[in-house]
Structure formats: C-alpha cells, structure tokens
Simulated scan of single mutants.
Amino acid sequence: MVLGTDDACSAGALKVIDIPEGITQHLPATWPGLPLRIDSPGWDPVISGKMIGIAVAFADIGTVDPTGFDGVTAGLRVNANVHAPLLCVTDVFDVASGDLSLPGRVNQ
C-alpha cells in the first residue's frame, strides 16, 4: 500500500493514500471502485533474511514509475468514512530499514 502523512489520523501520522474524488485511475480487479492505493490478494511477498520480494503483474496495474519503498509492520485503524481517512497507521512495530529511508527499488 502507499502511505502518506495526514494529521486527521493524528499529528504527523500516516494513512493509506486515497485516490482523490474525480480522479480516474486503473484499480486491480480485486479492489474495484475502492479509492485507495492498496495491494491485492495473490501478490504474496517472499521474505528471505533482509530481502523482501513481490512479483506484480504489471498488466493488472499499468506502468509503475521507479520509486522507493520500505517494509513496515503496523496496525491499521479503520474509520467509518472512506475519505475520513479510511485507514490510519497505528502502533508501528518494526521498519525494515530501521529509519523509513525507502531503500527498496522497483525493478521493471
């Protein structure tokens, strides 16, 4: 999933990024109409030591620009309204890089 800051979750807290109303974007077939940037079932990560890998069928989601990512384990708070925001990150347990520096890279 794609995270960003939103003070509606609490000061400086992260949320799952909404796709703004009025924006049309290709969504995976498993999440039709849900306006969130979130992964889909069947995209199973492979964890080996300090490496995390995931194979993504680009035909399902379109082109992904090169970007950084990190692995995080955390709780999610679900709000009643989809744009309230719907999913706020709570209780961060661990960050793979140790400092959320986004060292992972997408290989296309």
Rank of each mutant, 00 (worst) to 15 (best):
V46S: 09
T63D: 11
I23W: 07
G62R: 10
A84Q: 13
K50G: 12
C9E: 02
G49R: 13
L100I: 03
S101Q: 12
G22I: 12
V72Q: 08
L86T: 12
A13M: 03
G71D: 10
R37S: 07
M1T: 00
P32I: 07
H26E: 14
G75L: 03
G71C: 09
H26K: 14
A74Y: 02
P41V: 03
M1K: 07
L87K: 00
G42V: 00
A11G: 13
L34S: 00
I19Y: 06
M51T: 15
D60E: 15
I23D: 14
T24L: 05
H26L: 14
A11H: 07
A55I: 15
G98N: 07
N79K: 10
H83P: 09
D65M: 09
Q25L: 11
P85S: 09
W31E: 15
G33V: 08
A80V: 08
P28F: 12
A57S: 09
L102S: 07
D65H: 04
P103I: 08
N81E: 14
D94C: 01
D6T: 03
T73C: 02
V78Q: 01
M51P: 08
A13I: 05
P45L: 10
I61N: 06
G104D: 02
N79G: 10
T63A: 07
S101A: 11
D94W: 04
D94R: 10
A29C: 04
